[in-house]
Write a protein that binds this DNA or RNA. Sequence first.
DNA 1: CCGGATCCGGTTTGATACTG
DNA 2: CAGTATCAAACCGGATCCGG
Lengths: 113, 113
Amino acid sequence: MLVVVALGEETKRFSQLHAQIAGISKKMLTQVLRELERNSLDKRVVYLVIPPMVEYSLTPLGLTLRELIYALRDWSERYIEEVERRRTEYDQQDKTLLQEQIMALVQQWTEAS
Amino acid sequence: MLVVVALGEETKRFSQLHAQIAGISKKMLTQVLRELERNSLDKRVVYLVIPPMVEYSLTPLGLTLRELIYALRDWSERYIEEVERRRTEYDQQDKTLLQEQIMALVQQWTEAS
DNA sequence: CCGGATCCGGTTTGATACTG
DNA sequence: CAGTATCAAACCGGATCCGG
């Protein structure tokens, strides 16, 4: 998905994509690009020069999918803060419950001794 | 994702969801539902009865996400055939190449002997 | 009925080195 | 530059048993 976003409107080279997508390995990038190509979502053009040059671009089909991915990205950007806030609450709630359970155990122990 | 679609508009019980989503294990369903709950995308209501009864429903936030998921589902339904057709072509192309390579090897071998 | 806990094989991934 | 090859490590996801 990030790959489709990274491709954007333009044709890009392998190393450009690799630099643009933080933390992806060459292996994974290759794998994803090949799979997209297989599904005809992107196009791969190899120039027979030295050093090698390979360009990737979205197909018309890929472009239609990109719109949806943009919508997802916008949703994330809009709600990411709320989700993270809620998640923190949820996790702390768990922590509170755990504390209560521990306190209960301590109490039982003190009563028993 | 399928879980969000399955939840739809209504409140549903665990076993309903489990029956509705083909091939998901209880473990996975539980895991997904808990993660969604953690991100406040669904709500979990436990009734303290025997046998247990647990109901799940989408939160307002979850409802906004559901719209996007519907869009993705529609995209899939619309283009799935094209993608599969292209994929088949792509794979057969590979097979053809492989055959050519094998033929070339056979030729070399027959020439050598 | 709705899970939690544990084990366990298979897939995926990262790291590293290498190549035309 | 744009990958491929190989191996170890991490991460699932399923199967099974248990428990309120």
